[in-house]
Amino acid sequence: MMDSRNKLKMMIVTALFAAIIGIMAQLTIPLPLVPITGQTLAVGLAATILGSRYGTISVLVYLAMGAVGMPVFSGMSSGLGVIFGPTGGFLIGFIPTAFITGYYMERTSFKLPNAIIANILGMFVALAFGTVWLKFIAELSWTAAIMAGFVPFLIGGFIKAFLAAWAGIMVRGRLLTNRLLLA
């Protein structure tokens, strides 16, 4: 059972990762319908470092902050209009992305090869959610949705998956060593 001190540590670290996702969302390369952002890297980091439960909670806190009006989404935007707009599928897709990435890490081991696999799986989950959402919200054909919501993000997605895996394993190790994270 987790004592109150450890619970507080995990709440603080989880909130910190929600803020990191919001900060990384501001690193943007604009594209016509969906921009390339740093938030996918941050979601991968959160899941790799915190695991499925706390990684997913950090994404939920991030989405709640944006839903209530804090400008944490790409381009300092916020609100339910963003969540239910063309990019909303990617935002909603971060929930299963964080869970699946963290779950894979927990079921295998927190080692770099597993982290790379987990983050690549997570990338595909986010892209799939985003592409399906984009197809219906923007009323696109499947080909147009795939060309707008999937293909442009593959190379960057692989790069971000590798970076999240590498940095996540390093940071997780240091946080565990300094007892700032529960194993």
Results as ranks from 00 to 15, higher is better:
P113D: 07
F90A: 01
K9N: 13
M105E: 03
M24I: 05
G75T: 02
G173Y: 10
M170H: 12
N119T: 04
Y62N: 01
L121D: 03
V125G: 07
L121C: 11
T177R: 14
V132D: 05
G157L: 02
S4A: 14
G51V: 07
G168H: 05
S78D: 03
I92C: 03
R174K: 15
F94H: 02
L27K: 06
T97A: 06
M123P: 01
F150R: 08
S109R: 14
P96W: 02
A115T: 04
P96V: 05
M70H: 03
A161C: 11
N114E: 13
L181M: 08
I92H: 02
V34Y: 01
L45A: 06
F150S: 09
G130A: 10
T40P: 03
A128D: 04
G75P: 03
V171K: 05
I137P: 00
K9V: 03
W133K: 06
A145H: 01
F162K: 10
T131N: 07
G102V: 02
A164S: 15
L41F: 13
E106H: 09
I36Y: 08
M24R: 02
L182H: 07
R172N: 04
L175V: 08
F150N: 09
N119P: 03
G69F: 08
A144Q: 15
L127M: 11
I83F: 00
G85K: 00
L182R: 11
G168V: 03
I146D: 02
